[in-house]
C-alpha cells in the first residue's frame, strides 16, 4: 500500500428499521492499544506486593490521623467523639478460585540453569506449577543447546514456540516463549526472551528442527525475523500480505484486503495471463470490434 495512513474499511450502510446494529462500534473494528505490560515476572510481582502493603499501611495511618483531628475538633466544639476507626479486613471469597502468583524458583532445573548460564539468566520463577526462565536475548541459542544436550536437563522436544506483542513496554516490544518438554523426565520448562523491535534472534532450528514452521508463523503474525532460518517466508497469510496481524495495532477486520471483489474479475486472471503470454510472442489480442 502506498497510502500514508491505512484506513479501516468503510462500514456497509445500515438498513433502516427498529433494530439497527452499529457496525462501526463493533469491537472488531476498534484498535485498543493496551496500556499495561502483562509480562509475568517475580520482580514486578514482589514490587507490587510491597507497594500494595505500603499503600495499605499509609491508608491506615491516615485514617487514624483523621480520627485524631476529628476527635480534637469535636471536643473543642463540645460534641460527642466520633467512632474510632476499624482496620479494614480483606474480604474472604469462598469460591474455588485461587489465583496462582509467582514464587521463588526452587526447582533443581532452574537452579542448574542459573548455575550454568550465570549472568545471562535474567530471571527465574515458578507460577501455576510451571517453571519459567528468562534469558538475555543473545544467549537463547546457548540456553537451548544446554537444555537439549545436558544429561541433567535432557529436554528432548520443543513443544511450542510463540511470541506476544507488548506495545506499552519500554526496552522491548515482544516476548518470544519456548516451551520445552522432557519426555524421559516428564518435565516442562519455559524459556523466554524479550526482544526489541527490529532485533533478529537466533533461530532454534539448529537445535530443534521442529521450530521451522513455528518461527515462520511468528514472522508471519508478528514480524520477528529469525537469523539463520532455512526458509523465512510467510506461512499462513499469502506471500504478498502486508502487515503483521497479531500486533496490537492491527484491527481484527484488517486494513481492507479482504473486501476486494473477486467477482468482477470474471475470467480476468486467465485473460491477464493470456495477454502477457501474447505480449511476449508479439501478438495483439485486443482486436477492435466491428460496429
Amino acid at each position: 500500500m502506498t497510502e500514508p495512513v491505512p484506513q479501516i474499511p468503510e462500514v456497509p450502510a445500515a438498513p433502516a428499521g427498529p433494530y439497527v446494529y452499529d457496525y462501526a462500534a463493533s469491537p472488531q473494528r476498534q484498535i485498543v492499544m493496551p496500556k499495561t505490560v502483562p509480562l509475568p515476572s517475580l520482580k514486578t510481582y514482589q514490587a507490587e506486593v510491597v507497594a500494595a502493603a505500603a499503600a495499605d499501611e499509609a491508608k491506615w495511618v491516615k485514617m487514624q490521623a483523621d480520627f485524631e483531628t476529628a476527635k480534637t475538633k469535636a471536643e473543642a466544639e463540645g460534641k460527642d467523639a466520633p467512632k474510632p476507626p476499624v482496620r479494614p479486613v480483606p474480604r474472604k471469597d469462598d469460591n474455588d478460585m485461587k489465583t496462582p502468583w509467582p514464587q521463588e524458583a526452587k526447582d533443581a532445573d532452574l537452579l542448574l540453569l542459573q548455575e550454568r548460564l550465570g549472568g545471562k539468566v535474567e530471571e527465574t520463577f515458578e507460577q501455576a506449577g510451571e517453571l519459567t526462565c528468562q534469558v538475555s536475548k543473545d544467549a537463547i541459542l546457548e540456553a537451548l543447546q544446554l537444555c537439549r544436550a545436558d544429561a541433567g536437563l535432557n529436554y528432548e522436544m520443543l513443544a511450542d514456540q510463540s511470541a506476544t506483542h507488548y506495545p506499552a513496554a519500554t526496552g522491548f516490544a515482544f516476548s518470544v516463549v519456548y516451551h520445552l518438554t522432557s519426555i524421559s523426565r516428564r518435565k516442562r520448562l519455559r524459556l523466554r526472551i524479550l526482544v526489541p523491535e527490529g532485533f533478529t534472534p537466533e533461530s532454534a532450528c539448529a537445535v530443534y528442527p521442529g521450530a521451522n514452521w513455528m518461527e515462520r508463523e511468528i514472522y508471519d503474525m508478528l514480524g520477528i525475523r529469525f537469523a539463520n532460518h532455512p526458509d523465512m517466508t510467510r506461512i499462513l497469510c499469502p506471500e504478498d500480505w502486508e502487515g503483521y496481524p497479531l500486533r496490537k495495532d492491527y484491527p481484527v477486520v484488517g486494513w481492507g484486503q479482504r473486501d476486494i471483489s473477486f467477482r468482477e474479475d470474471r475470467g480476468g486472471r486467465l485473460d491477464l495471463i493470456a495477454q502477457q503470454k501474447a505480449g511476449q510472442l508479439g501478438i495483439n489480442l485486443k482486436q477492435p470490434k466491428a460496429e
Partner: peptide, 15 residues
C-alpha cells in the same frame, strides 16, 4: 470469523 483473512460470504467470489 469476522477477521482479516476471511471473505464474508462466498457470494463475493461466485454467484
Amino acid at each position: 470469523f469476522d477477521s482479516y483473512h476471511t471473505i464474508q460470504g462466498v457470494d463475493k467470489v461466485i454467484p
